Computed example of a mutant assay.
Amino acid sequence: MTLTDHLSSPRLPSVGLLSEGQMRGGACVFCGSVATVDLGRHDMRCLGAVVHWFPRACRPCADGGYVDHLIAAAMSVCRELPPPPQLTDLYRRLQHEVRRRLPIAERAAAVAGQGTMSCHAHQRVVDAAIDALTDAAVDDEPSPLVLAMRCHELGRRLHDLVPYRPCGDS
């Protein structure tokens, strides 16, 4: 997978957090339902060796529905604090997805015309997303509760960015 592919495609969950069915391709890597869509070859390091992995997804998640699962997970982290590895994985996936959608929102604000209500609406979404991303840069190793609150905020920002679909998503 090239750097461009990595930046333009959704971030997959960490392999260590997947079920056996998700690992062997029978279940969607995002939601766990029956997988029908191949997501292509992915390489990962395991004990110093490069291992090829061929994840799969269900049709709704492959068509962009995985974002709904990310948002739902982000909204629930403060109620049900997941284990730190799962929380860290969710946080990285949320950051990745917000960063994927941010340029589309910035383009929409630029095209809308300076001073228009549409421009201000797009810019509000952009500014809030940038604030959520930069707030995280302050602390390298936050406590699980702080990380959960950051996940929740990124989930809110991702919810605002849902209309801004990256190229390649349906």
Rank of each mutant, 00 (worst) to 15 (best):
G40R: 02
G40Y: 09
G40S: 13
R41W: 03
R41G: 11
H42A: 07
H42S: 03
H42N: 05
D43N: 08
D43T: 13
D43E: 15
M44P: 00
R45T: 14
R45N: 10
R45M: 14
C46K: 01
C46E: 14
L47C: 07
L47K: 12
G48D: 09
G48E: 09
G48V: 04
G48Y: 06
V50C: 00
V50L: 11
V50P: 01
V51Y: 05
V51E: 13
V51K: 10
V51R: 13
V51N: 01
V51A: 08
V51W: 08
H52C: 10
H52D: 14
W53C: 02
W53F: 11
F54R: 14
F54G: 06
F54K: 12
P55K: 04
P55N: 00
P55E: 01
R56S: 14
R56N: 12
R56L: 01
R56Y: 09
R56H: 15
R56V: 03
R56W: 10
A57Y: 04
A57C: 08
A57H: 08
A57F: 04
A57R: 03
A57V: 05
R59D: 13
R59C: 02
P60C: 10
P60N: 10
P60Q: 14
C61H: 06
A62S: 15
A62Y: 03
G64N: 12
G64M: 10
G64R: 05
G65T: 12
Y66E: 05
V67R: 13
V67K: 04
D68T: 10
D68R: 13
H69V: 14
H69T: 14
H69I: 06
H69W: 09
L70K: 04
L70V: 08
L70A: 06
I71R: 08
I71V: 15
I71T: 09
A72I: 01
A73V: 04
A73G: 07
A73N: 10
A74E: 06
A74D: 11
A74N: 11
A74F: 08
A74C: 13
A74L: 10
M75A: 15
M75Q: 14
M75F: 14
S76G: 10
S76R: 12
V77N: 02
V77Y: 08
V77L: 10
C78L: 09
C78M: 13
C78S: 14
E80S: 15
L81Q: 12
P83K: 08
P84W: 09
P84S: 10
P84H: 04
P85V: 05
P85E: 02
P85R: 05
Q86N: 03
Q86K: 11
Q86R: 13
L87D: 02
T88L: 03
D89I: 00
D89F: 01
L90M: 10
Y91E: 00
R92W: 08
R92S: 11
R92P: 00
R93L: 05
R93T: 06
R93V: 06
L94D: 07
L94T: 07
L94R: 02
Q95E: 15
E97I: 01
V98P: 01
R99S: 06
